[in-house]
Design a protein around this nucleic acid. Structure first.
Lengths: 339, 339
DNA sequence: GCAGGTATTCAAAGCGCTTTGGAAATGATT
DNA sequence: AATCATTTCCAAAGCGCTTTGAATACCTGC
């Protein structure tokens, strides 16, 4: 069933049928209803490809998901982010186009997306300091929103980000207030922008209190359970073992918890742990009272915000960059206590 | 830059340029090279929409990701599955179209996908016994592959699935062989096909050994850490507490581990745990030797297989259904020991 | 030197839609 | 009844590509 068929059935021109369906004013209410009824009856829906060829808009948003070539790891926050963004797209009749590519091929992918005109805009994931994708997308002249930020001079692009620096500064201060002085930081890969900022916050709090941060207690790597375990395990064996951990993700924290219980310590009593919680739907931080004290910020929500911002930019007259900085909530759970 | 421009620059017809780029034989090697060089120079790439309008093939595969309306949970295996499938699509110049929709709107979404002709095929996720999507997709006449199976009379569709029944039967027998008799099953929602089959395997092994399965030790729910914890916690408090747990996912198992360590028991010594491990990239089961004894089957691999199968079916003459049944590997880790 | 074949190239139609620039019908106004 | 403004509808062009059917150029062998 296509427009031609449908218009023949109705005894109307394609023009009229098209206008009726797209709610143009120059068609009488009577015919509009007749047309819509027929469309529903025959389960007609405009062919996307033809439609976007004619309009020049693809009604699709691209997400380029880089797979780290060394580690082959999918970012675990990805699913929830996508789910959030996807909701917004569905509501606005947009499709989501996913390209899963090795990180080394990202540039080529963006260029193709632009040349093939298959999307109206893209979301950039996992920015790094001085991220080359930002100038690239600007030069390709394709609307985009960055989830996170790329610290460099040029802040002239749209982003949605958590205030990572402040989150970790607060978390650190929270532990200081409880009397802890030997704090460990178990961070994500520090060539990622968010991890840099978190470390900055951690160090800033130390500086403000005049406490020396111990370099041996600051590590960073891919955010897996296994790394969390190994890092915590070896730190706990040290003479200058920490009395508290600040951990960049729930998944690493699960490893930390394993190391703690292997050491026959009790979290919250013998040792404190505070995490950043992305509020992943499949890893809720306990039910009633949080297992981990956490700086919490929903990545699902961030997905929604990014998507909405991008859709807004695409239709807006004013294409000037927009920024949304989210503050995480500091939620006290069972994993922290006095030193 | 479009075909017209490019052909004008080259002083050739659009026909010739198109054929040169698409490796048709009726164009001389000399001009082909000239054309390809020019295309590269001007960063030309055929407009996807125009191309697929002309060819009738969209070169895109749809994935409809249902969000449970009650729980708003994204399936944690989703990211790895998508990553696997995405790799295959990229390699074959296909796009992946994702629709994230509330489960109640799934049918409408499939109908739209078909009517709008925006994909050449779809992958069906999370099948249930007697899944209505299968007859629907058949009637819409759109190629599809199911990840998993829907137990009912009609097996006349393509699927890729793990032998869940056998996996759990083996796991159960493994525990029996270690001398365990009081086994607990912590399963996913049993209106999902995979969970049904796992339970069947669990019960079949019991029946074969003449051991009575204790209904109080078989639970099923959304597969979260929290549910794993609560289930194990309450079971361990029982008079007829189990000596071993069979757990349907890594994430639930993490909760089980928490309950075990809270009870001051040691996994592998005081109590055994065997899990099903989907080999999620961000939740590896330990590094050298597995933390959990597990029936392991990579969902990333399953994603690749589903994608490849679907692409094959789309181009094949023979559209008859194909099946791939994967056997999981039983990997012995540190979480099991004699009763 | 020419028929017959092959290797190249091209003009134009068509994919299914939107949209421009009228045309026809209707209604209001004189 | 004639005029003009509105409504309501339509034919046809165009989006950027592929593909059909035909034309042209280039070789053969006799």
């Amino acid at each position: 069933m296509n427009l031609k068929n449908l218009s023949e059935i109705l005894g109307l021109s394609q023009t009229t049928v098209s206008r009726a369906l797209n709610d143009y004013p120059e068609v009488s209410e009577a015919t509009r209803e007749r047309v819509k009824a027929a469309a529903a009856k025959h389960n007609y829906r405009a062919n996307t490809r033809a439609k976007s060829l004619a309009t020049g808009r693809s009604m699709a948003i691209g997400h380029v998901i880089p797979i780290s070539t060394q580690h082959e790891i999918v970012n675990p926050i990805f699913a929830d982010f996508i789910a959030g963004a996807g909701e917004v797209y569905s509501r606005n009749q947009h499709d989501m186009l996913l390209s899963v590519v090795p990180d080394v091929e990202e540039e080529r992918t963006y260029r193709e997306l632009a040349a093939k005109a298959s999307v109206d805009g893209v979301i950039v994931h996992g920015p790094r300091p001085n991220d080359p994708r930002i100038p690239l997308l600007k030069s390709l002249n394709i609307p985009f929103v960055v989830h996170g930020r790329a610290s460099d001079g040029d802040t002239d692009y749209s982003w949605v980000d958590v205030n990572n620096r402040r989150s970790f500064e607060r978390a650190t201060n929270f532990l200081f207030d409880l009397g802890h002085r030997k704090l460990a930081l178990i961070n994500g890969l520090e060539f990622m922008d968010f991890a840099c900022r978190r470390k900055e916050g951690f160090l800033a709090a130390h500086a403000a209190r005049g406490v020396e941060a111990n370099p041996a207690l600051m590590v960073s790597d891919e955010m897996t359970e296994d790394f969390g375990f190994k890092a915590a395990h070896s730190m706990l064996a040290r003479a200058d073992a920490p009395t508290a951990f600040i951990v960049s993700s729930m998944i690493m924290a699960i490893g930390v918890r394993r190391a703690i219980s292997d050491a026959r310590l009790k979290m919250g009593r013998d040792i404190s742990v505070i995490i950043h919680d992305d509020a992943l739907s499949y890893l809720p931080n306990g039910a009633e009272i949080p297992i981990f004290t956490a700086t919490k910020s929903s990545v699902h929500e961030a997905g929604k915000l990014c998507a909405q911002m991008l859709l807004d930019i695409i239709v807006a007259e004013d294409k000037s960059p927009r920024h949304t900085q989210l503050e995480s909530e500091l939620m006290v759970g069972e994993s922290t206590g006095p030193a």
